[in-house]
Computed example of a mutant assay.
Amino acid sequence: MSNITWLGAHDPFPNPISCQDPDPSVPGLIAVSERIYPGQLARAYQLGIFPWYSDNQPVLWWSPNPRMVLKTANFKCHDSLKKTIRQFLQDSKKEIVVDGDFASVVRSCATASRKDQDGTWITHEIMDAYTQLHEQSHAHSIAVLEDGCLIGGLYCVAFGSMVFGESMFSRQTDASKIALAALCAWCHQHQVEMIDCQQETAHLSSLGAAPIARDEFLTHLQIALKQSNMEICWKFNKEILRHWL
């Protein structure tokens, strides 16, 4: 990784628009840092860069090509999910809460077992950094509750009219899909055209996500950052799910 930039606390990120894949042997890796420094995460997202690394590794900063995105109008609400949504809406014990307990949702994502990844990339450092973004109103959680207990959810990052999906988890069948359906409905209603999904998985593909070229993603990001949707109130409940029925 001799060509990869090591970042200090005040160093700017290489811009992936002009500095694509500085080391071709590690495509998508833009920079490395010893830790996540204050303010660094916010700067990264506004350049289309995100951290993804494991414990005992330096912080690895990525801007992959292609980029997996979910265009909110293309969310696939299959008949089976529509049935689940109807049952969810009729069940008075079940609810959706936005930004009610951000830390609990992130911890649940970190400890969830999953086929396509082991979850270890959500380190304590990651949790602290995204909690700071949450305190600045740039990170949000969508919790799916039953009898007040967390059964699923997701967290995401938002700048301008760009939303970046981070991680989701389920403790009951389709609970994470309920959270994602709610987020997509809210985004669609507020003219948020796409949710960044970062990396391709079969699960996301089944829900309508698809890869696009990095240049296309970065162009969209620059436009979305200039839009004023960051002032939109991130408050909604399970009634948002009626969008898909």
Score class of each variant (00 low, 15 high):
Val98Met: 12
Glu239Gly: 13
Ser18Pro: 09
Lys238Pro: 04
Ser137Tyr: 11
Ile232Lys: 06
Leu29Tyr: 08
Arg86Gln: 12
Glu146Asn: 14
Met230Ala: 09
His243Asn: 10
Ile122Arg: 00
Cys233Leu: 12
Val192Asp: 00
Cys184Lys: 02
Ile232Val: 13
Glu34Ala: 15
His188Met: 11
Gln40Met: 15
Ala210Asn: 08
Ser228Gly: 11
Asp174His: 10
Lys94Cys: 12
Leu89Arg: 13
Gly100Phe: 06
Leu183Ala: 05
Met230Ser: 12
Cys109Asp: 08
Ser2Ile: 14
Asn65Val: 02
Gly165Arg: 04
Ala143Glu: 15
Tyr155Asp: 03
Ile178Gln: 00
Cys187Asp: 02
Asp21Phe: 02
Ile85Tyr: 01
Asp118Asn: 14
Leu29Ser: 08
Glu125Gln: 09
Val59His: 06
Gln87Met: 13
Cys19Ile: 12
Tyr45Met: 05
Gln222Cys: 09
Ser228Tyr: 05
Glu216Arg: 04
Ser54Trp: 11
Pro211Arg: 04
Gly165Asp: 03
Asp147Pro: 05
Leu70Gln: 02
Ser2Met: 08
Ala182Val: 06
Asn237Thr: 13
Val157Asp: 01
Ala139Asn: 06
Thr120Gly: 10
Leu81Arg: 04
Gly28Leu: 00
His243Gln: 04
Trp6Asp: 00
Ile122Gln: 05
Pro51Met: 14
Cys156Arg: 02
Val59Ala: 01
Phe102Glu: 00
Arg107Leu: 15
Cys187Lys: 05
Trp244Arg: 01
